[in-house]
Amino acid sequence: MSSAEANPMRPYLGRLAGIEDIAAGIKLFQVEMTGPEGQAAFSEYKPGQFAFVSAFGAGEAPFGITSTPRRGSLVEFAIAALGHVTNTLHSLEVGDPVGVRGPLGNWFPMEEIKGRDIVILGGGIGGAPLRPVVHTILDNRVDYGHVTILWAARSPDLLVFTEEFDDWRATPDLDVHVTVDRGEEGWTGNVGLITQLLEQVNPSTENTVAITCGPPIMIHFAFLTLGKLGFNPEQSLTTLEARMHCGIGKCGRCNMGEKFVCTDGPVFWQSDIVGFLEGLL
């Protein structure tokens, strides 16, 4: 028997079209969807959405999508080797089959925030889901005001998408500031926490939206600092990471109180999760 409706737990098949080392222990996987259904499903997805990637035999895990459909049909994921599924993914080669289930979740309201200045705070691999936000702004530059990108990592070798910085910096009315918690030999850039950098840069709050992403603890402190600079919770957006098993609100794993990261998010206005974030810390 087969199901009449599409089975949300069944992945579409894909093939690894490219694998790139982008930081220490972090690879960028480019997936070519091989069947018509998967191609249709991933012809339209939005910045901030996520998908489960299957390494068949090891399992599946959720990742923010780091590409935009406008820049090509390959679906990209930046993945750190941290567990069984991700280590297995890291052992795969170009041409190997994978499964992709999605796109899932909500997205950054790129339409709604048109015309506003934007501050982007990306920490470590947590910055990966913000790359489609940056690309969307770059590809529609006139739709957005001044853009400030603050990019951080624990150490220089953990900074992701550094090879795109030149491209970003060449964009009019856009600043990129980079910092690392710990420098290392040869590092001439900023050393310090992203929140310290944020205070230095001190972006104007007027008609501005702050967008952040990273581990819950970083988001927590980013919100605190943004608050200090005068940003109110209706001005700050974040995408949240959580452990997930279904992505469709059923498995229970990702709840924060009565909200679910997978179906109510992963993108939230700070004002919608006041009182909930603590549950993830």
């Binding site: 299957s54 035999g57 090891a58 599946e60 098993h245 498995c251 229970g252």
Partner: peptide
């Protein structure tokens, strides 16, 4: 609440059978 995992049920001669 549920968890999801893969188990390899058979492996050999170029064929791997997996249950999710």
């Amino acid at each position: 609440c549920f968890d999801v995992a893969d188990r390899v049920v058979e492996q050999g001669a170029g064929i791997t059978r997996i249950e999710r």
